[in-house]
Simulated scan of single mutants.
Amino acid sequence: MTEATERFFESLPARAPDVLHSPVSGTLQIDLARGNQTLHWVVRMAPGVIEVSRHRGPADAIWYTSEELFDRLVTGQAQAISTVLRNESSFSGHVGLFLAFRRFFPDPPGTRDPRDVAREQAGRLR
């Protein structure tokens, strides 16, 4: 497991109150492929709360991806939904859990909120 991924999972409980506002609750199992083995993370989500463990167990949804791709996600170099649409990762189960979890990933480097850009442009027109 890379340091970036470890730090990402360790940070989730502290970040949950700011990120998990929707009423989505459930368990997401994240399976990370590394060579011939699979590393498992289980994330239990509820509004404002998240618990993370390394124990495999019953889950409402399962997301399967490579460890390398997950590292790109936690560093903002890839986008979760895009990886599923391009078939670089796969997902099954309660899609709301995946959509809620993806909000923990950072934006790509250099990304700006379009509202901020519009405000700046409106300010220049005055």
Rank of each mutant, 00 (worst) to 15 (best):
Gly35Pro: 02
Leu85Glu: 08
His21Lys: 15
Val95Pro: 00
Thr2Ile: 03
Pro47Thr: 11
Glu88Arg: 12
Arg44Val: 04
Leu39Lys: 10
Ala61Phe: 05
Ala59Met: 08
Phe70Met: 01
Leu39Arg: 12
Pro47His: 11
His21Val: 14
His21Trp: 14
Ala61Ile: 06
Ala14Ile: 03
Arg34Phe: 08
Ser90Phe: 00
Ala33Phe: 00
Pro106Gly: 01
Met45Tyr: 13
Thr5Cys: 12
Arg54Lys: 15
Arg126His: 15
Ser92Phe: 06
Thr27Ser: 15
Ser22Cys: 04
Ile62Val: 15
Trp41Ser: 10
Phe91Glu: 08
Gly96Pro: 13
Leu28Tyr: 12
Ile81Leu: 06
Thr111Tyr: 11
Gly93Lys: 01
Thr2Asn: 10
Ala100Met: 00
Arg56Thr: 11
Asp60Gly: 11
Trp41Leu: 13
Gly35Trp: 00
Val19Met: 05
Gly123Lys: 12
Leu69Thr: 04
Ser66Asp: 05
Ala122Cys: 11
Val24Leu: 07
Val19Asp: 05
His21Leu: 15
Leu69Glu: 04
Phe98Trp: 04
Gly26Asp: 05
Thr2Arg: 11
His21Phe: 14
Val42Met: 12
Thr65Phe: 10
Arg44Met: 03
Pro109His: 11
Val24His: 06
Ser53Thr: 13
Gln121Pro: 06
Thr75Gln: 09
Ile30Lys: 09
Phe98Gly: 06
Ser22Tyr: 00
Arg72Ile: 02
Ser90Cys: 00
Leu28Asp: 08
Gly123Trp: 14
Phe105His: 07
Val52Gln: 13
Ala16His: 03
Val95Ser: 02
Ile81Gln: 05
Ile81Ala: 08
Arg15Thr: 06
Leu20His: 06
Thr111His: 07
Ser92Asp: 13
Val42Pro: 04
Thr5Asp: 10
Asp71Arg: 09
Asp107Lys: 04
Ile50Lys: 01
Glu120Lys: 05
Ser66Thr: 12
Arg54Val: 15
Ile62Ser: 15
Leu85Ser: 04
Phe9Asp: 08
Pro23Ile: 07
Glu120Ala: 08
Arg102Cys: 09
Ser25Gln: 10
Arg34Thr: 06
His94Trp: 00
Glu68Tyr: 10
Arg72Ala: 05
Leu85Cys: 02
Arg54Phe: 14
Asp71Glu: 09
His40Glu: 09
Val117Thr: 00
Arg86Val: 01
Glu3Trp: 12
Glu51Arg: 11
Phe70Ile: 02
Leu28Cys: 09
Pro109Gly: 08
Glu67Asn: 02
Thr83Ala: 03
